[in-house]
Design a binder for these strands. Sequence first.
DNA 1: ATGAAAGCGCTAACAC
DNA 2: GTGTTAGCGCTTTCAT
Lengths: 326, 326
Amino acid sequence: MVTINDIAKLAGVAKSTVSRYLNGGSVSRRTKETLDRIIKETEYVPNTFAQSLKVKQSNLIGIIIPRLNSYATNEILQSVDRCLREKSYQLLIVNTDQDVEREVENLYALSRQKVAGIILLATDVTRAHKEAMEKIGIPVLLLGQRSDATYAIVHEEEEAGAAMGRHALRLGHKKILYLGVTEKDESVGVLRKKGVMDVLKNAEGIDVQEEEVDFNFDITFRFLKEYLKDRVETYILCATDNIALAAYKASITLGRKVPEDVSISGFGGYSITDLVTPSITTVRYAYKEMGRIAAENLLRLLQGEEIPKKIALSGEFLPKESTKAL
Amino acid sequence: MVTINDIAKLAGVAKSTVSRYLNGGSVSRRTKETLDRIIKETEYVPNTFAQSLKVKQSNLIGIIIPRLNSYATNEILQSVDRCLREKSYQLLIVNTDQDVEREVENLYALSRQKVAGIILLATDVTRAHKEAMEKIGIPVLLLGQRSDATYAIVHEEEEAGAAMGRHALRLGHKKILYLGVTEKDESVGVLRKKGVMDVLKNAEGIDVQEEEVDFNFDITFRFLKEYLKDRVETYILCATDNIALAAYKASITLGRKVPEDVSISGFGGYSITDLVTPSITTVRYAYKEMGRIAAENLLRLLQGEEIPKKIALSGEFLPKESTKAL
DNA sequence: ATGAAAGCGCTAACAC
DNA sequence: GTGTTAGCGCTTTCAT
């Protein structure tokens, strides 16, 4: 293995000169040329451990995600990754398998690894989270959930909910079933629902029923196969695309036609909503953009620049085949 | 930041003793107890950079993947990750965005990061790959493609293909359309097809047509919307679930019923094949198991144990609603 | 069982 | 612009 020392000897300079050359310090034209050549010939690459040991920081950015097999996660990962790579940062992905405790553990674990910054796809920001963020002293960027504890990038949930609510009204539906999720999830469980409900409840002669279901397709599908049997609503407004998919499949199973007998919509803009027939009305969230902004802003933060505490991204309402006028 | 030196001083021993304690060397009962206590109190954690700098290796395992947004990739990632975490290894995920050159680059990049081993979700194993693997001197495990260059874990492609071919025959179909992919992909493009074709071509009175399409849903869907217009086959045997999905959506668009007018099947066992209606006949590949075996075997290799050069995993044939007897 | 000392490859003061 | 020097925090002989 070739080290900075070897290079220095071969070039007949001190290793500090080589180091300066490497880190963009000032070196004479001639030295630069020799070094250019020698480093190329020897295929020298600096030892990242020695570097990191010295500067007490790495070029690693940690990202904590709840699960690997989610469309949203993947979109975000991909764009964060792409963005960081351009700036020659490495993404260290840690998956918590939906275990909130492990989010906190990993905050500490990543700080031990001396990551320069952390992106956290948050589900719920607890006291333990805040404590960890304070303690480790590394910039943390939250994605998907609001919290005044640190910087956050979120989706415009209320706006999206309202758009979908208006859509249902516009199509003339009077009996509407809302399938939501736990209110522990501030973004999806509370705000998204609020957006929908504010619109529906302010309208005349609308009958809204509400039910809480699970994020998981299988669980929700099994539940809905029974639950939907004696429902009479003509529009099922689902809090996520996965739930919409389950509602769709359950409706079909019960012999109802979509959208002829019942309209169904989701939220998220997962690509699968386009693959099924009929395609599913949804709001596409700006996952890619969220990832890009997260990466860019985190890097800015690392350079000591100021960035906004909170950014909210608008989604795009996409009416498709699964909803039609009554 | 608390270092091994601090611990040594607090305990009144030499830092080499602390190091021995940390690495399971022999220390007296008493020393052990003091150290236990002090390390707990100070919340000391070793600096991984200093460690790695010294031992010239890290607890990182690199995994090179073609894309982040694929079902197969995610299943594998998840189980590899879980498995490695148990053994306190860290997974370093690098995404190449389907760029074969970047696979090679990253082989080198990971070796610079001193990863202990590399798992490569291969698409095509070129000369450059082999050269890189040799040069870096780090164990590499191939997933999904055969190559005598190093260890490999693959799916039983021919077996799976044959199972599906037999299924089509069993249902009495005579006119069959095979939608395959490029033969550059040895596993899917060559072997999987061979499995299917060997069965179909050996049967009596079977008319098999063959067409090459893309892995990508959108591209293939657009193509099939036209292509399928004047096809008369009653069974479309697709090389992947994504292609099956595209074929399904194109058929629907053209006013044909699945499976009444035409049967469709895929390969892969993506969860989406269950979400759509009708659910799609497929062969489920053992992605989770592949990931687990990959992780376990790579670790074995690192301990100097022997592991088989090639492992082939059988898939599970899953007949569903999208195929029916003629 | 323990300690002293050397050194992994690098960066950054500082002096020239 | 360049060289000297002193560590960063750790592991690992080698004595004792």
